[in-house]
Write a protein that binds this DNA or RNA. Structure first.
Lengths: 143, 143
DNA sequence: TTATTAAAACACCAAAAGGTCTTTTAATAT
DNA sequence: ATATTAAAAGACCTTTTGGTGTTTTAATAA
């Protein structure tokens, strides 16, 4: 579905938010271990998320990653869009730029409801809502 | 949705089948032009499809690509699977190997119906059915 | 004020995806 | 037979993705 960077980013963000709910500010080593993603790559991705403004961080002792609680909840779609663009949830199955309701590819009509469902899913679910679900147990973030 | 190779392959296959319905056996140059894909890359992809047994070809004068009409219709899923595996229509949104009904990621339940719909779509539609639709007009294969 | 800690910055590397081009082989029409 | 045509084979090349590692900077606790 999504590329590796997006997958690690989503899992990492949900994990950080989950820890924040517990009053903890995790660092790169902890996040990478818990979401079972490559250590250095996870660090790079978290830092990119900070630069993109999705996440905050502090250096030094007691440092780590956390969310600005004054900001609104973060929809998955916003993160996906920022990392890999809209190719996953928009765009034609045949790769045609002109494909649309007026000028459809042979799959367009059948694909439209699926695309709409994906859009809805990643537009409505947020890092916060998923962290909340995760906290209640029954879901996993690693392996 | 799909990667470039898959997109060009699907468009190319549908175009070849469409031409076959008209009693014509197109070559690389014609296919690449009509589906508006890179010439040499299209050639490479069509040749791969021949090696994979999805398509037939003859060299020399009057040569080109065509389908073995004694074979059953070719579902898109078979082509997609052969080129890029099942990552697009199977697998977890969070990239977790263990994710499933027993051990779900936070998105699993919501994603399940979408994956099922994609599976159905590419499992039911075939190169032949799309070529038939294309022949009736109203759909495009290029741009 | 100086160790210590942890993120930021940056350099680098490997594999895969996407794409181009030339040479070889096979079919066919003359 | 041979010229012509068109696919097959294969050698490269570029960009993107995925990943690793070291050095620098900033925060804090002692």
């Amino acid at each position: 579905m999504f590329n590796k960077e997006t997958e690690y980013a989503l899992r990492g963000l949900v994990y950080v938010q989950f820890q924040q709910m517990l009053g903890h500010k995790p660092g790169i080593v902890e996040v990478a271990r818990e979401i079972e993603a490559p250590l250095f790559y996870t660090g790079k991705i978290l830092q990119r998320l900070v630069k993109m403004g999705f996440l905050m961080s502090t250096k030094g002792k007691g440092g780590g990653f956390y969310f600005d609680t004054t900001k609104p909840d973060l929809p998955l779609k916003t993160v996906v869009q920022a990392i890999e663009g809209d190719k996953t949830y928009a765009g034609c199955g045949f790769g045609l730029k002109e494909c649309g309701d007026e000028n459809p590819c042979p799959l367009h009509e059948q694909f439209a409801p699926i695309r709409a469902a994906i859009n809805k899913l990643i537009g409505q679910n947020t890092v916060q809502s998923l962290a909340h679900d995760f906290r209640k147990g029954g879901t996993i973030l690693g392996l």
